[in-house]
């Protein structure tokens, strides 16, 4: 073993989404679908049968006009860090948390399509291929050459653009950079027109994502479940935080006070 191959502390990739900047345009959804070859699906699919790795949901403050307000929240695999529910239920070991990146990986080659993971996922962020992947005639020519379409009968989900990660990793290796220094960004973060999505290494205290994740207005979805998501959200609007979870500070207080 040479010095260059000494293992460094692994990265813990994560995301912070500023909901006060999200205008619900859906650019992240289509960027994700294009990057990861998510198929068009037959017409008439529902929110349960269609595949949308990243789905922007509408939030309402529940008030009536003129106090009604809308917010948007992009929801994808939250990349749980602790007690990852999908990992623990998969009978095929088709889901694993990559120690080098912290990314929850889904391996379609191993997946049997039992969908236990879909049941276990508290974020409804996993999708099943009910059909063969198909695009309108000719559109298959536009597929991303770096990502293989998944076959019918397997589950898929957001993997923080694993194809991009691997490419960046290979490039870092060629450049002689340490694995720790692998820098890349996801398609959704690259596409977001308002700059609402920040992606990076949560373990790098100097990174923008790590600093934003510590914001007093940051929160994670279903924090109480203790799944340790690596996707954080920010909103100054109290009703948004209340609708999607609660702030980390408030959550900590609740735990402390039992």
């Amino acid at each position: 073993m040479t010095k260059e191959t000494v293992k460094t502390r692994p990265a813990r990739y994560g995301m912070v989404i500023d909901l006060d900047r999200c205008n619900g345009c859906g650019a992240c959804m289509i960027a994700c679908a294009v990057e990861n070859n998510v198929p068009a699906c037959p017409e008439g699919v529902t929110d349960r049968t269609g595949i949308t790795w990243m789905r922007v949901q509408k939030l309402s403050n529940g008030q009536s006009f003129p106090d009604s307000r809308t917010a948007f929240i992009p929801v994808m695999c939250q990349q749980c860090g602790d007690k990852t529910p999908c990992v623990s239920v998969c009978p095929q070991q088709a889901v694993e948390v990559d120690e080098a990146s912290g990314i929850v990986d889904q391996m379609p080659q191993r997946c049997l399509g039992c969908r236990y993971c879909m049941v276990a996922c508290p974020y409804h962020a996993r999708y099943f291929n009910w059909w063969d992947p198909a695009w309108p005639n000719g559109m298959e020519r536009t597929l991303n050459p770096d990502v293989a379409p998944r076959m019918r009968g397997v589950v898929e989900k957001c993997n923080f653009c694993h194809g991009r990660y691997q490419e960046a990793r290979a490039k870092a290796a060629v450049d002689g950079a340490a694995e720790r220094a692998v820098e890349y960004t996801t398609a959704c973060a690259e596409a977001c027109p308002t700059g609402a999505i920040t992606f990076g290494d949560l373990d790098d205290p100097g990174s923008e994502v790590a600093q934003l994740a510590k914001s007093e207005n940051a929160f994670r979805l279903l924090e109480k479940l203790g799944t340790g998501p690596k996707v954080h959200y920010i909103s100054k609007r109290a009703w948004v935080r209340a609708a999607a979870g609660s702030s980390l500070a408030a959550e900590t207080r609740e735990v402390r006070h039992g």
Binding site: A33, V34, N137, N144, T194
Partner: peptide, 27 residues
């Protein structure tokens, strides 16, 4: 063959622009 579209020079694209390379094959 175009396989994806991205904003350049600090600009970002709208969702329709991001998937504009699909439009020639639109049924």
């Amino acid at each position: 063959q175009p396989v994806s579209m991205w904003g350049a020079a600090g600009h970002r694209l709208c969702p329709i622009g991001l998937s504009a390379h699909h439009l020639p094959y639109h049924p």
